[in-house]
Design a binder for these strands. Structure first.
Lengths: 111, 111
DNA sequence: TTCTTTCATCGTATATTTGCGATATAAAAC
DNA sequence: GTTTTATATCGCAAATATACGATGAAAGAA
């Protein structure tokens, strides 16, 4: 039984995991790359670049948005997405803070 | 049909996604934290700390090992795990390289 | 040899993710 | 008004992930 035990972990652990999960698919990495490359916000260009159907891309965009990695506004038939650098940096700092801080004191490998 | 389209993406995108996936669960974040905190390699102590069954923890350890984030050696009844800092750094640099480099030229938000 | 301890792996059930086609929606073009 | 264009959402099927108990394996203790 896959009874969800995620709540049993700390808030921070869950947040980090959520962030990682949002990036845990090549399609979403590719989307982030496209969004980062273009200065202006991209809509359906992503669909042209990716080897996926429009509905699938839209779903991935939704997940990235839910995770807070990107911002998006819907303007009728046209939508506008862009990377949420602030959120990105926050999580990124949390990651490195968690591990690089600990890394200093035990550099030696043991296995 | 969830026909796996992951191969349609670049090697680097897949690697980054694999790395992210390995961290995409609070239990695995927690395991990494425990391994990082203890200078020596940990075996069953992780099971005591986490709110999960031994078999589940072992499975998470296996995934982390497969992803290359930790090293592990089995010494009969006792096993020894520790963080693979080299691999960790490599991926971490790849992440930041991918995004922070791009961040410089388009700091302005558009949405 | 026969326990005991420590862990990995197998089998299973359930939950979540992934992907697509079909359909809805909403503004602009006609 | 109708049509077109761009995107979101729904519903479904297949794949993966999550979790556990049961069992297996391997080394040391009795």
């Amino acid at each position: 039984m896959a009874t969800n035990k995620k709540e049993a972990f700390s808030q921070k652990e869950q947040e980090l995991a959520e962030f990682a999960k949002a990036m845990a698919h090549p399609a979403r990495i590719a989307i982030l790359k496209v969004l980062a490359k273009h200065n202006e916000c991209i809509c359906g260009e992503i669909v042209d670049v990716l080897p996926l159907a429009q509905s699938t891309v839209s779903q991935h965009l939704k997940e990235l948005k839910n995770a807070g990695l990107i911002d998006g506004t819907i303007d009728g038939p046209r939508s506008c997405y862009c990377i949420n650098w602030k959120a990105f940096e926050k999580f990124f700092a949390e990651f490195s803070g968690l591990f690089t801080a600990l890394k200093i004191k035990n550099e030696k490998a043991c296995c």
